[in-house]
Amino acid sequence: MAEPFPYPFPRPTALGIPEQIAGVHDDPLLPVVLPSGDEAVLLTRYRDVRQVLTDDRLSRNLSRPDAARISRNNSMFQDPRINPDPPEHTRVRSLVAKAFTATRVKKLEPQIHAIADELIDDMERTGGPVDLNEALAFPLPVRVICRLLGVPDEDVALFRHWTATFLSVSQFPAEEIKKSMADMSRYIAAHIEARRQDPGGDLVSAMIRAHDEEGRLSEYELQWWCRLLLLVGYETTATQLGGGVAMLLSHPDQLSLLREDPSLLPSAIEELLRWKIVGSSVSMLRYATDDIELENCTIKKGMSVIPAADCANQDPGQFPDPLSFDITRSENAHLTFSLGPHFCIGAALARAELRIATEALLNRFPTLRLAVPATDLKRIEGALLEGFTAIPVTW
């Protein structure tokens, strides 16, 4: 029997699709080994991935002793005190989701525009080259999420290191991860108490009311969800934003199409999302609580399974010429935001930030370009999200 493939798959270049994905659809259930050394199976075909994402027999609760782990050093998503499956997950999610409705996001758009313009003003004053990560891609979404959660602007800088350690697979030692988690927990406890004494219209205040007045959240759930939203509510968008701009700049034919016809921006954002610039699908790790029959294979009870959106998004059975980056692609039902009960609640906010920031950046700098060859861009190693070490741009 062949050895399982290491997953995440290596990339030929920072913006390139891993070579394994091109032929992976021949095997609907591909054995893989995770960074922890644990084995799992990769579900590769679009139809199968879409099916299981709505199947309650595939659990997100990874606290079981026989469930695969993503990392040896970090027990992310394996908290035994939090059940990430319905109905417990649904109960809490319904509270949080109210802050991310299309209507609420629409009301946030003027703030997103203002923050983006302020950051781009700073870029213009500084002059190129600049690192797009530090100039725009990270500051924008972290400031938006912090305002949404009622975190003071002066505390925004604290979250960069905490986020990096929280999302570490092998990037940081266990001791540093533990220390950052403790620092973060103390901050969140203090933030919750401050909002309890001085409530506002932010999401944390609403969650405190759900705990104190309505009893719909335990104290631990309140702190856990605040931590999760504060830390991962922005890094995915930041990585997608910076990498998405780099992708456009490295495809001058597609960039020209977009500049000639700005109405293509929404479809360009969706094509960039299909490309899943944030990285692999290792965070979608699941556990089968029963046998699940699929069209060409069976997921056996007790299997650790990754419904791989990165593979599904490149399935030629769903997307014509999938390895072609095409911002005019009209049928683009990618699975980057997942599906079903775990569909990303921040999808509408992420799309708004990606659209507003990309449009503002391209409008301000008609000659925007990468300051290094695209092949020189590097990804961060050992992190759950495969972010970029830097994205130098000039104009």
Results as ranks from 00 to 15, higher is better:
R11K: 14
R11L: 09
P12I: 04
P12Q: 14
P12F: 04
T13K: 06
T13E: 01
A14W: 02
A14R: 00
A14D: 00
A14C: 03
L15R: 06
I17W: 02
I17R: 08
P18F: 10
E19Q: 15
E19S: 15
Q20T: 11
I21G: 02
I21N: 00
I21F: 05
A22D: 14
A22H: 15
G23Q: 14
G23P: 03
V24F: 07
H25R: 01
D26M: 02
D26E: 03
D27E: 00
P28K: 04
L29Y: 00
L30C: 01
P31M: 12
P31T: 09
P31Q: 06
P31F: 06
V32S: 00
V32D: 02
V32H: 00
V33S: 07
V33A: 06
L34Y: 05
L34C: 04
P35L: 05
P35H: 07
S36V: 02
G37T: 06
D38C: 00
D38W: 01
E39V: 06
A40V: 02
L42E: 03
T44K: 03
R45M: 03
R45V: 01
R47C: 07
V49T: 02
V49Q: 00
R50K: 15
Q51P: 07
V52L: 08
L53W: 12
T54P: 08
T54L: 13
T54G: 14
D56E: 08
L58K: 03
S59K: 04
S59Y: 05
R60K: 15
R60V: 07
N61I: 09
N61Q: 10
L62N: 04
R64K: 10
P65D: 15
D66K: 13
A67T: 07
A67D: 05
A67E: 06
A67Y: 02
A68H: 05
R69V: 07
I70A: 07
S71Q: 05
S71M: 04
R72P: 04
R72N: 09
N74A: 02
S75K: 03
S75D: 08
S75F: 05
S75N: 09
M76K: 03
M76R: 03
F77I: 10
F77G: 05
Q78L: 10
D79R: 09
D79T: 10
P80H: 10
P80R: 13
P80G: 11
P80N: 12
R81Q: 15
I82Q: 01
N83L: 09
N83I: 04
P84G: 06
P86V: 14
P86M: 14
P87S: 11
E88V: 09
H89Y: 14
T90K: 13
R91N: 09
R91D: 11
V92G: 09
V92Y: 06
S94W: 08
L95M: 12
L95Y: 13
V96L: 11
V96T: 11
A97S: 01
A97R: 00
K98T: 12
K98M: 12
K98G: 14
A99T: 06
A99S: 11
